[in-house]
């Protein structure tokens, strides 16, 4: 694992927060995400984080 469970938890929390706030920010630029799109972005983001954290490829290449 590339990071600790605690840091992973906090990264996921921050990601969720960014997704929630990002929808509001994007709307200022006339990009409107629906709730479903927002949830989708969140899920994809969390998945990427998990892959990044657990994938042996990443941890090898980075160390």
């Amino acid at each position: 694992m590339r990071t600790s469970p605690a840091k992973l938890l906090i990264l996921i929390a921050i990601l969720l927060v960014i997704v929630v706030e990002l929808r509001t920010v994007l709307a200022f630029f006339d990009v409107e995400l629906t709730v479903l799109q927002g949830i989708a972005v969140g899920i994809v983001g969390i998945a990427l984080l998990l892959v990044w954290a657990f994938s042996p490829l990443f941890s090898e290449s980075d160390q």
Binding site: L9, I10, A13, L16, V17, V20, E21
Partner: peptide
């Protein structure tokens, strides 16, 4: 962490 997420929502 739950508090942090809850408050932002």
């Amino acid at each position: 962490v739950l508090w942090f997420v809850g408050i932002v929502f």
